[in-house]
């Protein structure tokens, strides 16, 4: 068998192996590339950064472990920013497993904060019921949004820890979505950002931003900029956001705090490998066609 034939009939396992290496090596050796934030990422960062301290921000965790690598860096970056800016954070989940993703995020942040407080010597308040509340998951997708649009307490008589909503300090002046200053939905599909725009942010007249997987992001462009103030689509934007966060809050600039940037190295190399395969595929295709013509 000639070299050409070998390439043309390449075993898919060879492709798989090379992709595996392309993903694993940059993560193991933390390959990093310089990042320049695209305009929309900068726009979102400024929007959040310019909200006054004490603003009420709802963060909805609408994803599961499968999308964790892509979406978790966004969730972490946004939560960090909200905490640093002194916002009040209302956590919700439209996906059952989103509740766990939120819990893991909060646990991680609690550990982070202790460490960052030592670094900066500044006390960062992050107390349950005061700085953040976890409302948890309710089934019903847009039905849930429809209800909290007018009344949180009707959908959530208690928070995820069985505490009556009426007794939580930060709920005292927050009765419905309309009382919020910003909605953030981090979503991997349906229900997610699209439902939050259509049934929540738009009728409530509240600004909304969101994070989507690279696959879902194109579907949400039609809502930007009128109904959607901006979205992070895919890992690259997450990495850019982490860069902006690191520049503004140096305590978060350490690469080990920036999972998105670490993973981005893997994505970059994997893209190049895929492109090389496409190039090789095309070369064999042209050789094939030429031979076909001769024969």
């Amino acid at each position: 068998m000639s070299f050409y034939e070998k390439v043309a009939n390449i075993d898919r396992r060879v492709i798989f192996l090379l992709i595996g290496l392309a993903v694993a090596i940059p993560i193991i050796f933390t390959v990093r590339f310089p990042g320049f934030p695209t305009p929309m990422v900068q726009e979102i960062f400024d929007l959040v950064e310019n909200l006054p301290a004490g603003s009420k921000v709802l963060v909805s965790f609408d994803y599961d472990p499968a999308s964790e690598p892509e979406l978790q860096p966004m969730a972490t970056a946004w939560m960090r920013q909200c905490i640093e800016r002194g916002f009040r954070i209302y956590i919700m989940a439209l996906w059952p497993i989103g509740q766990d993703m939120a819990r893991l995020t909060v646990d991680q942040l609690k550990r982070d904060i202790a460490e960052k407080e030592r670094l900066t010597g500044k006390k960062v308040p992050f107390e349950y019921g005061v700085n953040y509340v976890d409302l948890g998951y309710k089934s019903g997708a847009q039905g849930v949004i429809n209800v909290v649009l007018t009344d949180f307490e009707k959908m959530y008589p208690t928070d995820s820890t069985n505490q009556a909503l009426s007794s939580i300090p930060m709920m005292s002046d927050t009765k419905s979505l309309k009382d919020l200053d910003l909605i953030i939905s981090i979503s991997a599909g349906t229900p997610g950002l699209k439902e939050w725009i259509q049934f929540g942010a738009d009728p409530a007249g509240v600004k909304i931003i969101g994070g989507s997987t690279a696959v879902q992001a194109p579907l949400l462009y039609p809502y930007y900029p009128k109904q959607l103030s901006g979205q992070l689509g895919g890992l690259k934007t997450a990495a850019e956001y982490e860069k902006l966060m690191g520049d503004r809050y140096p305590q978060y600039s350490d690469i080990k705090d920036n999972k998105g940037r670490i993973r981005m190295g893997a994505q970059a190399i994997a893209h190049i490998v895929i492109m090389l395969f496409i190039v090789v595929g095309n070369i064999t295709f042209f050789i094939d066609r030429r031979r076909g013509k001769r024969g």
Binding site: L149, T150, D151, S172, D173, T174, K175, S176, K178, D179, D181, G205
Partner: peptide, 19 residues
């Protein structure tokens, strides 16, 4: 009784808890 709050750029509020 407290019903809700809005930011300074708004001049209306919908109190939708009367069902």
């Amino acid at each position: 009784d407290a019903a809700g709050s809005v930011s300074a750029d708004k001049n209306s509020y919908m109190d939708s808890t009367h069902k």
